[in-house]
Amino acid sequence: MNWEIFFQALTSGILTGGLFALVAVGLTMILGVLKIINFAHGEFLMLGMYMTYWLCTLFNMDPYLTLIITIPAFFFFGVIIQRWLINPILDAPMEIQILLTLGLFIFLANLAQLLFGPHVRSIETAYTFKILTIGSVNFASTRLIMFIFAIIFTTALYIFLKKTDLGKAIRACSEESYGAMLVGINVKRVYMIAFGIGTACAAAAGSLAMPIYYVNPHIGATFVMTAFVVVVLGGMGNFMGALVGGFIIGLAESFGAVILSASLKQLVTFTIFVLILLLRPTGLFGTKRS
C-alpha cells in the first residue's frame, strides 16, 4: 500500500466513521438510559432515508434541508414508540423486550416494502457527483457534508447531555433511575425523550446518508449491525465510546476494503466484534456494571 492509497483510505474511513458514530450514539443512548437493545434502530435510519427521498423527489427539497423535518418528526415518532410500546414492558424480562424491538424491526422493514416497494431508490442533486480533491485524496462532497453534520449533531448532543438540566437528568436516569425518581425526575418522561433523541439520531443519519447510499426497505439491517459493533466496541451505553468506536469501525472498513477487498470489508468489522467480546467484553470505554 502506498501513501496515496493510505491517505485515501484514512480520509474515507474518517468520513464514514462520522456517520457510524451518529448512528451508534443514538443506539447507545437508548441502551444506556433504557437498558433496551433496540433492534429497530436501523429501521429508523431506513425510514429517515425514505423521508428525505420523498421530500426531495416530491417537493424538490435539498436533502440537507430535509433535516429540519426528519429530526423533529422522528423525535416524536420515538417518543410515541416509547410511550405506547416500550414503557409498558419496561419491567418485563429482557427477552420480551428483545422480542418487541425485533418485532418492530420486522414490522417497519415490511411496512416500508409494502408502501415503497422493494426497488432500490436514490436521489441526485447538483453536487452529487462533485468530487473534492485535497492533495492526492479524492472524496465526494456529499461525504464531507455528511461528516460535518454528523459531527455537529453529536457535539450538540454531547453539550446538551453535559450542560443542561434535562441532559443531566438523562444521565442520572441512565445511572441510577431509582435515585433519579427520588430527586423528582419524571423518569418515564425522560425515557420518552431519550428514545426520541436516539430515534432522531438514526433518522438524521439516514437523511445524511441519502445523497450517498441507495435506499431499499432492508438497508436498516446493514447499518444496525455495524452500529451494534460500534456500541459494543465503545462500551455499551458509553457516549464517548460510541463516538470513538464509530471512527474505529469506519477506518477498519475502509482499510479492510483496501487491504482485503471491498466485498470483505465487513469481515474486518465483525472480526473486531468477536475479538472485543472475547478479550474485553466491557468495550474500550466501558466500566463493569454492578
Binding site: D165, K168, A169, R171, A172, E176, G179, A180, V183, I185
Partner: peptide, 15 residues
C-alpha cells in the same frame, strides 16, 4: 444513597 456515581458532586447536588 442512590447517588449518580459518574456525575460530579456539583451535578448530583444540582439534580
Amino acid at each position: 444513597r442512590k447517588l449518580f456515581p459518574s456525575l460530579t458532586v456539583l451535578e448530583n447536588l444540582e439534580l
